[in-house]
Amino acid sequence: MVDQSLSVPKYWRRIPQYYRLTALKCRKCGRVYFPPRAICDCGSREFDEVELPRRGRLIEFTVLRSVTSDFEKQRPLIFGIVDLNGVRVLGQLVDCPNPEKLSDNAEVEVVFRRVKEDSDYGIIYYGFKLRPLKGCW
């Protein structure tokens, strides 16, 4: 069998977070956690699942040129922190050929993209990325 260097179950169980940014909202204090947590800072363990909004603002970004083996052919990678209605998320920025032109608090949308793949024979890993609406080309 083709050697699988990445784990399938490890990916599969996080599909709600990777695909739809499924977070947990504390029933007691309303705080929203992404990634999910077992217990809220307020002590409560009761949560409801909520999806984070698909529009937000860019807080900060950097362009990574020295990437890991899974991303060799995708370099450079742009990483940004975005604020999605008060919840901050780290993700790749895409469709942004000139990130240095991005303005402070640039508006971004959450998109669905390929993240990596396990050689030509293993599975393809999908997940959310962040796409500036304008201003970086």
Partner: peptide
């Protein structure tokens, strides 16, 4: 965090750079 950060290709230098 392997599930939520390095999954997407982030490395320590990304966080240090930010």
């Amino acid at each position: 965090d392997s599930d939520y950060e390095s999954y997407f290709g982030a490395t320590p230098v990304v966080l240090a750079a930010l």
